[in-house]
Design a protein around this nucleic acid. Sequence first.
DNA 1: CTAGGGTTAG
Length: 717
Amino acid sequence: MEEDGFAATKLFNCGYSYTYDDVIFLPHYIDFSTDDVSFSMRRVPLLSSLMDTVTEGAMAAAMASLGGFEANMNSTEQLCLALIHKCKALKTVKQIQAFTCKTGLDTDRLVAGKLIFHCVVSISDALDYGRRVFSHFPDPDVFMYNTIIRGLAESDAPQSAIAAFTEMRRGSMVIAPPDSFSFAFVLKGAANYGSLRAGVQLHCQAIRHGLDTHIFVGTTLVSAYAECGCVGSAKKVFEEMREPNVVAWNAVVTACVRCGDVKGAVGMFDRMPIRNATSWNVMLAGYTKAGELELAKKVFLEMPVKDDVSWSTMISGFAHNGCFYEALGFFRELRRVGMRPNEVSLTVVLSMCALAGAIEFGKVLHGFLEKSGFLWIISVNNALIHTYSTCGNVDMARLIFEGMPKSKSIVSWTTMIAGLAMHGRGEEAIQLLHDMKASGIRPDRVTFISILYACSHAGLIEEGRTYFSKMVDIYGIEPAIEHYGCMVDLYGRAGKLQEAYDFVCQMPISPTAIIWRTLLGACSIHGYVELAEQVKERLSELEPNDSGDHVLLSNIYAIAGKWKDVAAVRRSMTDQRIKKTPGWSMIEVDKMMYTFVAGEKHDKITQEAYEKLREIMLKLRVEGGYVPEVGSVLHDIEEEEKEDSVSRHSEKLAVAFGMERLREGKIIRIVKNLRVCRDCHTVMKLISRVYRLEIVVRDRSRFHTFRDGSCSCRDYW
DNA sequence: CTAGGGTTAG
């Protein structure tokens, strides 16, 4: 796959030095008849009612607003152009558009082009209107097409940019051939759509037009290939460019980073003749994505000019690696040097709260956003929805979602659906899908991942099946590995292990380690020892050193009482030097985050938690009838020792600490990096009953809300 | 045309 993209283009020898090592037949035109890329050029009646509202007086007032320009206005065309340039809102654009209809300027090429351009580029949420003006124009030229393609490429439906390009090509008998802008914009659409097929075909066409080494086209080709995971092709396109500028260099370094090729990125970075702040920022992102935080910090300190992007990259990079303290440090540093937080740095900090489960800090930020007017930005709202959902307060997320000031984007809908899903509120998530369709937004592949996730976590098996086939049949979305993963989880979680296994065997793409791991997790919930062994064998072929897989298998044996097998797994782990991922849990008290690690460091805080925990466990035995469950302990050690090891799990410590420090009646919210174990689950249920407390635990796969002795997951996780 | 953020199965 990797090299196919580039090899295919070699078919077209257009006077360039391509060699043919691989011949793949491709048509000379883009054929998307099988894809769902409708692009309707329907002529819509436009604004006949508005036309009458444009009075001479209104136009005179508009002219007056032009001030100094007025003297040079010697034609209505020029007047219109100047007026359009001044427009800041769609409402005014509509007025002028009505004026052009009235004066016959609607067929003026310059004016129409300017109108379309203004709608697409300068005014937000006006793409649709621009499209309508476009569709009204009798014979649109390349510039108009380019503008429309440009807007569509950045829209929620980037595939329609490709369709628009195709339509332009079909009409190429009457209009001029595509230029470098056409290719740059449509390739951006292909990249956003993530379609290698479209990318390759466009590359072919670019070669035929002699534009593939054009600086803009080449640069976009590099990033389009990278977006499809073809880092080799991206590099080759770059190497063929005759005089790459800084932007092209940045693009190729970015391509390496996108595809996880840090070495390649460093190599390219070192070769760069000139570097601006962007180049350094790309390296920061590259290092943090690879988990190389020290190197990222080194580059950050060394770089000559830091801009707002640099800080956002550091905050996000450290947060995604679990280093919340340092991440917050960069946010403080940003303010200390006198930079104003912008909407991106704020969403980055919000997403840090989401990762850390820091709801109190999130609320502080929410207040700040409200006061400083940031809530007008859609992405900021999306970040808030995500933060509240992943911090356990999905109702607050819903309030923000409902109250969004501007229109909701596809991300807003999908985020909300995913939020409901992770709280087990499957029916509401499905209802939201219908509301979304009713409001005219088409669900995409990510939306369906969230829907299938919702079905599996709420035990809605039939619904899950239905939506999977609807996605394919009605929406023409080809299922990706993520969708298959959801389906395996859906069957497995519900105890339909045979169906899950059959499903994996019938998948048209080869199952990844993640797929097998999902199945292994299902085996562990439902105690299928034999199937687990089979599945583990597959995993050993694919990823033999994953500690989680070993621990899961060992737990499956332990629950079945097969202590010899437990010991064998443990031995093989020691032999292969596989270390268990240490479990940690976090709790926020007075806007401070406290992290507990099982059986680690006996500092004052941990001591305090232990002491409280001892007291709680005693009370649970006496008043709650608690008997420890030790099935999920890795070692076949003495019973008493096992019990001791279970009693030290980090989530218990975090809960105990919360009970000690938090105000009475406060909900105890815990975030854990692994899945919560059975014994801890039981203990939490008991605590919620005996102490009349509410505990919310976010583990690596979902939320557990413990209330009155039971859990929202209905013991199903 | 290039960099940072908001959605994504386990």
